[in-house]
């Protein structure tokens, strides 16, 4: 059942997302071809290459933002719109629905990262030669030979995953709670903004205090302290629970 939910989620979201990737990759291709075909020193040719590069750059930005927007709007439409009459009467629990959507979103975020890197490689392919890969391997080797580098990398990755999951769950919770208010939508939005600001301020305050009380020297660099991870996880759980609660107990479609 869970696998099927994910399969359908991929199908439903893939249509828009793959088109978005497609545009970005096409522009990346155009960039690399423009770099090879045009002479940058000739006035008008240089401009053409410039415009293509700008378009490509914008498409990368569009993908980064678009992934989140597309997935969030899909959630709203699929669970809280007319399709909700179909989805919320499936023989499955709310947990499965939420988790399948969250995991699919995370997969798309990873895929987006890969697609972006790929597009950069394509766009910049004219500067890729045998030396590039040699330097890349050497660079990576250098980084990983540093003690603790791997651990830093993993922690950054973990933090990024937790953050990505948080903003996703935040939007799920926001929309799920919103639909339970037939009237007073304005009040809800106001409250949602206030609560979000208060929460993040609170977390920031806790984090700073931890830093001070842990007596960390100003020079010591910690990407994120354990308390930050705890907060990220806590906020994730809070948002998940809010979405789950709204869908289980306060569902009120149209």
């Amino acid at each position: 059942m869970f696998g099927k939910l994910m399969k359908h989620e991929f199908q439903a979201t893939g249509r828009s997302l793959l088109r978005l990737y497609g545009i970005m990759l096409v522009l990346a291709l155009m960039t690399t071809m423009a770099m090879r075909l045009f002479d940058l020193n000739q006035g008008w040719q240089g401009s053409v290459v410039g415009y293509i590069m700008i378009a490509y750059g914008l498409s990368v930005f569009a993908v980064a933002v678009g992934v989140f927007i597309i997935l969030t709007l899909h959630y709203k439409k699929n669970i809280l719109g007319d399709e909700g009459y179909l989805m919320m009467t499936l023989p499955t629990g709310v947990h499965s629905l939420l988790l399948s959507k969250l995991l699919t979103a995370m997969a798309w975020y990873l895929l987006t990262g890969v697609a972006m890197v790929l597009s950069v490689l394509i766009a910049d392919s004219s500067s890729i030669d045998s030396a590039f890969f040699h330097d890349l391997v050497a660079g990576l080797h250098h980084i990983f030979s540093q003690s603790g580098a791997l651990s830093v990398l993993l922690r950054v990755l973990l933090a990024m995953l937790l953050f990505a999951s948080l903003i996703t769950l935040l939007s799920y919770a926001y929309y799920s709670l919103e639909q339970s208010f037939r009237k007073h939508k304005g009040l809800y939005n106001f409250a949602a903004v206030v609560v979000t600001l208060v929460l993040f301020r609170l977390c920031g305050w806790i984090s700073v205090n931890y830093h001070i009380n842990a007596g960390l020297a100003a020079r010591e660099v910690q990407i994120l302290t354990p308390i930050d991870y705890a907060q990220l996880i806590g906020l994730n759980l809070l948002m998940y629970f809010a979405a789950w609660w709204a869908l289980s107990k306060r569902l009120n479609l149209e």
Partner: peptide, 17 residues
């Protein structure tokens, strides 16, 4: 979830994607 497996529901509006 179990009762949903034995109930077939036709909503008033079109719910098909």
């Amino acid at each position: 979830a179990q009762t949903k497996a034995i109930v077939s529901y036709l909503p008033e509006r079109n719910a098909l994607p």
